[in-house]
Design a binder for these strands. Structure first.
Lengths: 137, 137
DNA sequence: CTTGACCTTCCAGTCACTGGAAGGATTAGC
DNA sequence: GCTAATCCTTCCAGTGACTGGAAGGTCAAG
């Protein structure tokens, strides 16, 4: 099938699919007219990539997962380890965002938000906070 | 002062400070020897940038905040609006990561993680999940 | 006078695409 | 058969926010 159909079936934009070929994640055949010709296993691979990317795996991690996938001898523990590390990264990211959020929330809460020019948010950013000290280090 | 000291005082790497000059966020003087010469208000500006970036504001948002900061007539509501939008973005990002996390957690939980080759994580990525269906759409 | 720390510019790379230009192939309609 | 629309190709450049490194100038200490 042509790239348009592969795109539809995998959910990935054609541009992205070509990019994945550039970086050797898929290697479709070529038809006589020079068009890429995707097999159903190519589409399978593309869907795998789509799903894994959606789960937050980087391209390199996807490459690893794909190689684990095609390695009939790999232990499931290997895959679990990759996934668990990713989970830990996601947790860390969430924690970081939450502390970000509470800092910003604090600033928003103490800003009266009217048409007067003084603003605790800018004051804090500028490093001139009042007695409460800075939200940021 | 030279860039090294400005870097120490602002907490930003010298490389980043030069980059900020490239994109017109700061405009230090130059000494006779060609070295950048930072005033204390330059450092002030750099610290502002450092803090705002740490709070998750993009460079363009920082540019806006800086212009609001130097506009003695702006209403605090303007700043609050920017901050609140950022808060909403952070919330959305957290929610996204949490759904990511639970999807991945589900997969990790049902992978036995031993040396047998079958692995629910890869099966799901490949689109061959069992009766439970896919974690991913 | 040399060593080392600091400064300069410029170029390239990161990550994962995304946009667009210029042109060839195919298909649908008239 | 012609034309227009759609699809495909390649290649180049840009995104955001830096970061690394090369090549070279400047300065302070010993």
């Amino acid at each position: 099938m042509n790239i348009g159909e592969a795109s539809e079936r995998s959910g990935l934009p054609a541009k992205t699919i070509r990019y994945y070929e550039d970086i050797s994640l898929v290697a479709p055949d070529r038809a006589e007219n020079g068009y890429r010709d995707y097999s159903s296993s190519d589409v399978h691979r593309l869907r795998f990539l789509h799903r894994a990317r959606n789960l937050g795996f980087s391209i390199d991690e996807c490459r690893l997962l794909l190689s684990l996938y095609s390695d009939r001898n790999r232990a499931s523990a290997d895959v679990k380890a990759v996934a668990e590390q990713k989970l830990a990264e996601i947790d860390a990211k969430i924690a970081e965002l939450q502390s970000l959020k509470s800092a910003l929330q604090l600033l928003v809460d103490c800003c009266h938000g009217d048409d007067r020019p003084d603003c605790p948010i800018l004051d804090d950013l500028a490093g001139q906070g009042g007695r409460k000290g800075h939200v940021l280090a």
